[in-house]
């Protein structure tokens, strides 16, 4: 399995179903914040644990981030979703949600958790519906607040060595809000995903 290559058909199909799922998630966020979410083309990769920071390309140059992680499992697939914010985003998000007080770390945490719930929930639901899967989600866990990307990657303690990664860098039009939603699927999940996608293609 270690020399497994991601085939183009799987990569293309995953990109497409993710595109639809993240579109639904973005729609919810756009309605919540009354703004337009710029949708990127998702990036699909097969990565070693040591290469995880490479998957976070859009946040590579950012010095301080905050992140939440949420596991999911079901239909013989397991993985985790990471939502990572550039810390400079929170002032704008607070403004968009009409929050008028000081943006303390507690408020930042609340905003982070709220948005994680919306984006991760909608994205996983969208994927599950299209691929005819059922996921149950774990509790969201704070990975770190005001940390750098390297420390964040080191701290995410789950035991995988290699994973199928789908990176979705969201941006809000006209605001300095950057966040990355990263879906990680365990190596064992890849075959199951492949079968589901072949079934859809028939």
């Amino acid at each position: 399995m270690s020399d497994y290559q991601l085939d183009d058909e799987l990569r293309d199909a995953l990109r497409e179903v993710t595109n639809v799922a993240m579109g639904r998630a973005a729609d919810l966020l756009a309605r919540l914040l009354d703004t337009y979410v710029v949708l990127p083309i998702p990036v699909v990769n097969l990565l070693e644990r040591s290469e995880l920071n490479m998957a976070l390309s859009s946040l590579r140059s950012v010095s301080s981030v905050s992140a939440v992680c949420q596991g999911f499992v079901g239909s013989r697939i397991s993985g985790e979703a990471l939502l990572i914010f550039n810390d400079t985003s929170f002032a704008d998000i607070a403004e968009l949600t009409s929050y008028s007080g000081d943006v303390t770390p507690e408020i930042e945490l609340e905003l982070l958790m709220d948005i994680a719930n919306i984006l991760i929930g909608a994205c996983l639901k969208g994927l599950a519906e299209q691929l005819d899967l059922t996921f149950s989600q774990g509790q969201p866990v704070l990975l770190g607040q005001h940390v750098n990307i390297e420390d964040l990657v080191r701290n995410s303690s789950s035991g995988w060595q290699r994973a199928l990664t789908v990176e979705i860098p969201y941006r809000l039009e006209g605001h300095s809000v950057d966040c990355d939603l990263l879906l990680l699927f365990t190596e064992d999940s890849i075959n199951v995903l492949e079968n589901k996608i072949h079934y859809l293609m028939e």
Partner: peptide, 23 residues
């Protein structure tokens, strides 16, 4: 897949006949 109301109205203004959401 971009089903935001803003996307739908933008493309209609730009001359698209109709918008259909994916899938």
């Amino acid at each position: 897949g971009d089903i935001q109301p803003e996307a739908v109205s933008r493309v209609k203004k730009m001359g698209a006949l109709e918008f259909i959401k994916k899938p």
